[in-house]
Amino acid sequence: MNVTIETLLNHKSIRKFQERTLTKEQIETIVKSAQAASTSSFIQAYSIIGVKDKQKKEKLAELAGNQVYVAKNGHFFVFCADIHRHELISDMESKDLSGSLESMETFMVSLIDTALAAQNASVAAESMGLGVVYIGGIRNNLEEVCKLLKVPKKVIPLFGLAVGYPDQSPDVKPRLPLEHIYHEDSYHENNGVLKEQLLEYNEVISSYYEKRTNGKRKDTWTEQMAQMLSNQKRQYMKEFIQNKGFSKH
């Protein structure tokens, strides 16, 4: 096992950071690492907004559900799906690209490109001894986030990434068993086996929570997922995405 794999397998979300800001060099290294990620057909359909302004970070923390670590970290990155520059290409090359830019396929490409870039950024940060936590809560109110960050029409902030020097050291959270995730040659749809694996995983997760919280919590993974998915979230999203010029057909 090499250092890269050790870094990947030791990933944990950090929600408490030291009061130390990242240097310009660290920020640029993380962004360059993000840019080195694979990108579908070289389209590079994403942008990254670094938020340093204290008031903006505090507002983002509020919009994300009052998550303190959105405001208190070494640096806050917002990863955005972005086809605004491709609209400029349409003008520069005198070609109507709206059919492609407004398609579901391009929307999916922009999401995938953004996620790949963000994961590269996360691994780079962790390899530098920094901690990270993804923030999906910025999608709670994207209208306000877009106003705050002044993003143009064909740009959608997808999630944040808080990065900084860890001020805590939580245990690595156990993932689903490999055999539940990995299928060879075809999807193995044996629901009896899958449910058995989920029951075994429930025991692992329940023990993890019980140990982590000194007995205050011991819910299972399937209980947690059922509870979370029972409450539909962000029902405005489809209309918002289409109004931003994405996924119209």
Rank of each mutant, 00 (worst) to 15 (best):
K57T: 09
I49W: 00
A71D: 07
K57S: 05
T39S: 13
A45W: 02
F77H: 03
G74Y: 11
Q67T: 03
E62V: 14
K59F: 01
H75L: 11
S47F: 02
F42E: 00
A71R: 06
Q35L: 11
S33Q: 01
A34L: 09
G50W: 07
I43V: 11
V31D: 02
N73I: 11
G74C: 07
F76S: 04
V68L: 11
K59R: 14
A34Q: 07
Q55D: 14
Q44G: 00
Q67F: 04
F79M: 10
I48Y: 03
A71Y: 03
I49A: 03
A45K: 01
A64G: 15
F42G: 00
Y46R: 02
E28C: 08
E28S: 13
V31M: 14
F76A: 02
T39L: 09
G65Y: 05
E62I: 12
A37Y: 07
I49L: 05
I48M: 04
Q44T: 05
F79C: 09
S47L: 05
A45T: 05
F79Y: 14
K59T: 14
I48P: 00
I27S: 01
I49Y: 10
K57Q: 12
Q67N: 01
V78P: 04
S47M: 09
A71V: 07
K54T: 13
A34I: 13
K72P: 01
A37Q: 00
A37L: 06
S40Q: 13
I27L: 13
G50F: 08
H75M: 09
F79T: 08
A45N: 03
G65D: 00
K52S: 11
I49D: 04
S40L: 10
H75N: 00
